[in-house]
Nucleic acid binder design. Structure first.
Lengths: 235, 235
DNA sequence: TCTTTAATTGTCATTTGTACAATTATTTTT
DNA sequence: AAAAATAATTGTACAAATGACAATTAAAGA
């Protein structure tokens, strides 16, 4: 069998930045690292790529191991490949980011692993370059969500307009005019109003909406403009 | 020394999609593969990542080896990691795309390697998954150029408005109204008019412009809107 | 009844997007 | 000197969007 002899082989890993939303704020799921070095410290969920799987499959597997789910939005973020990033051995990592609804999976997650949701503004010190990975993932999420309806991946099947607005305000750390926001969102045709109301957070109750899946899949690549003054959001 | 024993190591490669512009159309630089298998067939320029370099450095090195230059725009595109993508041995490749002015480097390139510029619409059959890489690179270039002034990386230091418009029209395969185009571009403040004219392609001659580097660096991440009806460009 | 949150409608000034007409300038070719 | 060709600029006109803010109506618990 032919080989590319003399070429350096190295370890390949994937690390997952798992974004979650629970109705209040944006959070990231972290685990306590199980192996040396740095065992016990907080880290992103990751793992080595095996010989028979593609990177995206590896990220899916890692995610599934931790959360028990496999139908989550998952996208390649970037490579992290500084030769000294892992002090033990040369390891190149591909970072992936995932988006999910915290309430849907919370039980499976926290009980089986030493995993914990951290508010996006209270991320502890992480091992290696995982802090950088999170910074880049946040920037990507902000960028992408400014143009594409990606944040619905963080919401449950039924959600209210105030929840949706909370989410956008949390992702960008801004406050948005309620009247203009609802008009913009409703005009996209992406929302289907339900008869039922959520009375959890107010007396009157807010109507539930479901995502129009057809329209969503069709317009996922279309360029929306949901954030006011999007220019000011990016540096 | 500690090791992550039992984990599978694999070959890591980089492949470069090198976009070039020569005043007429958008082109891609391809080389004739030097090693087996598929030696002699057309392929993207690539190479294995070495033990002491980051991925971006590897891509830079590959690019420099081929073109003799190292100050070229270079951006990570995506990973390609199907286990069977290289029939010889498991190799994960990170694709990078580069943008450069063909006329600036043409001499260094074509003479030293079996390299050739192919118009974007006349790409031959390529080895492995390199065709997919190019498709993805084209999509990324179109997407990114719709919002950011990235196409200037393809132009010489001095360029004319008709040239610039040709470039945009080539990248998107559309025709653009000259009057609106020049107004839009001039209003960005990115262009500095020169006294000199290019008389190569007309009797009257077109004024040269230079890029306002300060403004360019400052507004690189800002969201411009140069393409008319950008929505119709993406699927 | 009072209060609170939700939802909707309205307004208004400004900017942007885009299609298209017309003019002026410059210089080579005839 | 006139004609031809391309460049460059200015103008117009309308629709659409953007975004700031007022006001009103609705629902239901306290």
């Amino acid at each position: 069998m032919m080989r590319y002899s003399k070429q350096t082989k190295m370890l390949l890993a994937v690390d997952c930045i798992i974004f979650g939303f629970d109705g209040s704020g944006l959070k990231i799921l972290l685990v306590q690292r199980g192996i040396e070095p740095e065992a016990g410290k907080w880290s992103l969920m990751g793992g080595f790529v095996e010989s028979n799987e593609a990177l995206q499959e590896a990220a899916s597997r890692v995610l599934n191991t931790l959360t028990g789910i496999d139908d989550v939005y998952l996208e390649e973020l970037h490579s992290f490949s500084e030769p000294a990033r892992d002090p033990v051995e040369r390891t190149v990592s591909l970072a992936y980011f995932a988006l999910l609804d915290i309430n849907k999976y919370e039980k499976q997650i926290t009980h089986e692993y030493n995993a914990e949701w951290f508010p996006i503004k209270k991320i502890p010190k992480l091992i290696f370059d995982h802090g950088k990975m999170i910074e880049r993932a946040k920037a990507r999420l902000q960028y992408k969500a400014a143009f594409h309806p990606i944040l619905f991946e963080l919401l449950p099947a039924k959600f209210t307009l105030p929840q949706l607005q909370n989410l956008y305000e949390g992702v960008y750390d801004i406050s948005i005019d309620k009247r203009n926001f609802s008009r913009k969102l409703l005009s996209t045709g992406l929302l289907i109003k339900q008869d039922e109301k959520d009375k959890g957070s107010s007396k009157k109750g807010a109507f539930y909406y479901k995502l129009n899946k057809k329209k969503y899949n069709a317009s996922f690549n279309a360029v929306l403009n949901i954030i006011p003054n999007p220019d000011t959001v990016f540096s």
